[in-house]
Every structure is written in structure tokens, then in C-alpha cells.
Amino acid sequence: MTDAPSLRFVVPAGIDDPRRVSGGNVYDRHIRDGLRRRGWDVDVCEAADAEGAASVLGDAADGSRVLVDGLVAGWAPAAVEEAARRLRLTVLAHMVAAAFPDATDAAIDAERRALASAHGVIVTSAWTAAELARRELADPDRMVVAVPGTLPAEPGPPPPRDGELLCIGVIAPHKGQDTLLSALGRLRSEDWRCTIVGSTDAFPEFAAGIARQATALHGKVRLTGVLEDRALDDAYRRCALLIAPSRVESSGMAIADARARGIPVLGAETGGIPDALAGGGGMLVRPGDPAALAAALDAWLADPALRARLRREAHAARATLPAWQDTVTRVADVLEAA
């Protein structure tokens, strides 16, 4: 009888906090739970800052297997460099910090140092791998792509309103909710409503601006904050079209969830979004361009044939989506080889 594989998984604090919903946290939870179901002994260690990251890395036993969320690795590159000398250390990179418009030289250098020292790097999209390589932030030979999986979901009946729009993601500049609201103000039709779901805590000044923009649209936009499972399922059931107006996006967990339900997606042509929509059932527009987004929304609202085609494609694409067990298998293979 062999011992169960063991792993120390270093993640941001609050991974299970419903008020801190993020694609990275959802992904990390699926990896944690999936490995445990396979018999792995997974020790999850939460870190809130660089000091916490250094502490949980520092007391890991020599030669042990460690997976570090890329957000945490970026907080403590020196601790990652030191730990990699004595641990089998892999970094899980959900994003490319250097791709954000407000990325500082210090943040980019921290990302480079952490990724360079890791024995392996797991990324969540082909775009992330290509972008890290293009920016010379990680060695292509040490990167493995493990795209987010999807949970089985039955598509519901067509929503009663074709203008029921949904946008999900933390309220933040890189998610582009300001672009969406500017586009909504340009629409020719009045037959629409938009629900925007996401935490306002990360960027409160930006979120306050989004609230002002929404108010100016005379009650047609609803800001819900974070929604937990049942309420989020209800939002998807009412949704006719998911909108992903991001300026920067590695893959997009909300896109995967919409795809699993056969919901068409209107996304910005940036990052990993085009790859996520490659199976059909989506439209792409230039990121940060309210006029282009408004034109696509006008087309959706005005053209029944377009809506029917996108719905058919979205339903057909469900059969091509990866399951979370596929993602876990990919991650497990990388960790076993570390």
C-alpha cells in the first residue's frame, strides 16, 4: 500500500468566503476538492500578505510538494525563491499581472521572480501561457495549461425577455463595467434590463462611479453585489445574454458557467475570451469601446435570426466544454511530475 500523495496548497486568505468571490478562488477550491476526492492529502494554507506567505512556505518540510497561487507568489517573490531551493514548488498563475494597465514595475518584477524560480507553472488559458512567454516572464517549457472546468448544468427554457442582460465579476477597472454602462446608454432600444453582479470592495472608488453611471440609466441597471449559489443560479436562468466587457481577462469563470448553461456571450476580444468562445455561441467586440459594444447589443436586440443562431451554437458548444475532473487531472499530473 502506497502513501497518499501530499500537497501544501498556499492560497489567498478567504478562499471560502462568499463575500470574496473570484474566478481564482473558485478554481482553487475545485483543485483542492478534486485532489482530495482522488485521495490526496491537501493541506490548504491561507496567506493574507507577504509575511503570511513567507511563514507557510518557510515551515514546509524539505522536499515536500507545494502549489502556490500566483497572487500569493507575487506578494512574496523572495520567499518563493528561497522555498524553491528546497521544495518541489509549482506556481498556479491565474492571470498575467504585467498585462494590467496599472501594473507597477515592482509588481512585474515580483511576478517574473516568482515564476522564474518555480519548478513548474500551471496557467489557466493558452493566452496566459503565450502572454507570459511573450513578456519573457516564464519559460514556455515549464508551463502547462489547465483550463477551468465546468459543472454540469441543464439549459433552461428561453428567457421571456431577449433584453435580459447579465454581467458577472468583481467591480473593477479591468472588468470593464464602465464600458458596458456607457454602451447601454447608447442603445436604440429601450427593451432591455441589465443585472451587474460582483463585489464592490476591491476598488471602492471605481465601484462608486459605476453606481453613479447605473443610476443615470433610470432604473434599468441593477447592481446586486455578490450573489451566493441559489441567487446566482436564478440570475443565470433569467439571463438571455451574458456580457464580458473586460479590458484584461485570462479566461473568465462566468463565461464558462454561461457556456455550461447554453447562454450566448458577448465578450471583449481580449486575453483568453476569444479562446473561451471558440466553439460558437458568442460575439466579440473591441475592448474598452462603448460604441462597438452598443452596436453588438443593438444587433442582438433587433435581430431574431442572430439570437436564434447564437443560442443554437451555445447549446451545441456545451458538449465541447471541459469538466472540472479534466482540470484536476491536468493539475495532478503536473504536481506528480514536480
Rank of each mutant, 00 (worst) to 15 (best):
M1A: 15
T2W: 12
P5D: 03
L7N: 02
L7F: 02
G14F: 10
I15V: 15
S22F: 00
G23S: 04
G23E: 00
V26I: 15
V26E: 15
H30S: 10
I31G: 00
G34C: 02
G34L: 09
L35A: 09
R37E: 15
R37I: 02
R38F: 10
R38G: 13
V42H: 12
E46I: 13
A47D: 07
A48R: 13
D49N: 07
A53C: 14
A54W: 04
V56C: 12
V56I: 10
L57N: 08
S64R: 12
V66W: 01
G70C: 09
V72C: 03
G74D: 01
A78Y: 03
A79W: 11
V80M: 05
E81Q: 15
A84K: 07
L87G: 05
L89T: 10
L89D: 12
L89S: 04
L89W: 02
T90D: 03
T90L: 03
V91K: 07
M95D: 13
A98M: 03
P101A: 09
D102G: 05
T104P: 02
A107E: 14
D109W: 06
A114T: 01
S117H: 00
A118T: 03
I122N: 10
T124L: 13
A126R: 03
A129W: 11
A130M: 08
E136I: 02
E136W: 07
P140H: 00
V145N: 11
P148K: 05
G149E: 09
T150Y: 07
L151S: 15
G156M: 01
G156F: 08
P157F: 06
P159I: 08
R161M: 11
D162C: 01
G163K: 09
E164F: 05
I168H: 01
G169T: 06
G169S: 11
G176R: 13
Q177V: 01
L181H: 05
S182G: 14
R186T: 03
L187D: 02
E190L: 09
E190C: 06
D191R: 15
T195K: 04
G198L: 04
S199V: 09
G209D: 09
A211N: 06
K220D: 05
R222H: 12
L223Y: 07
T224W: 01
T224Y: 09
D229E: 15
D229Y: 05
D229N: 14
R238H: 14
L241Q: 10
L241A: 08
A244T: 11
P245I: 06
P245T: 01
V248E: 11
E249I: 12
S250N: 12
M253P: 06
I255V: 15
E269G: 14
T270D: 05
I273N: 02
P274V: 02
A276G: 08
L277Q: 02
A278P: 06
L284A: 11
R286H: 03
D289A: 12
A292F: 11
A296E: 08
A296V: 07
W300R: 05
P304V: 06
A305R: 14
L310C: 02
L310Q: 07
R311V: 07
E313S: 00
E313H: 00
A316D: 15
P322Y: 01
P322F: 11
A323S: 15
W324F: 08
Q325A: 15
T327Q: 07
T329E: 15
R330N: 00
R330P: 04
D333W: 00
V334P: 10
L335Y: 04
